[in-house]
Amino acid sequence: MKKIFYSLSLFVSLILVVASCEQDNYPLPDAQFFGAIRDSVGGGLVEQDLQTGSTIGMREKGYSTEVIQNYVIKQNGEFRNNLVYASTYDIVFQSCNFFPYELHDFVVKPGANEVTFLVVPFIRVKNCSITYDAGTNKVNATFNLEAGKPTVKLSKITLYVFTDMYVGEYIKKTVATGTGQPARTYSPAATIDPATPYTLSIDVAANSAVFGVHRNYYFRVGAMANQSGVGTIRTNYAPYVKIAL
């Protein structure tokens, strides 16, 4: 009788132990979500700030409290997140450098999901040329601007400089004006005429502290829009230009 009891106990314990070994972890993210933010006119990539720039707001459906997660967009307008749960999302673009919009019930499938978001940037910085003029010891930028919609006005243009490619509004060197004009503010905001050529320049001599070392410097032109009803406005950019000084 005793033997039976012990055997039975052992058997039950084993079953309980083995049963408790069942996999009970949450599943891993099973989808990759990547693609690009492109201009709805012309299809060019929409340049961004890496830091404090536009983000993709993803609100996963099906929870009692749906919280937005923000995915960062790369400097050149592409994005990639390899650890995403396949599910149904609302996608929210707010406080970006293009007009806000939302996509509802967007399905992210298991595996690769490549998406191109076509957007209307506030301002397009076009025909941008940034060159160094040894004669005047200045870096000069010339460019044109085009408003994304007729209501958009211009509040500021800036020629940024930094020591790496992430140059922009939030990653930049502070430059002294000297005889150059590194930025121009429009107050009140100005109407944007695509035919108007804009010029900015950085006086290298007046910024010996910034350009103290012979190396590559990265320059980028940014334009800040003035537009009501779109939340926080981020800067629109042309691609950066690398210059050895």
Binding site: V92, Q94, S95, P100, S228, G229, V230, G231, T232
Partner: peptide, 11 residues
């Protein structure tokens, strides 16, 4: 407020 306008559900 419009000097730093925001958008979103809360707005």
């Amino acid at each position: 407020w419009n000097k730093a306008a925001l958008i979103g559900d809360a707005v």
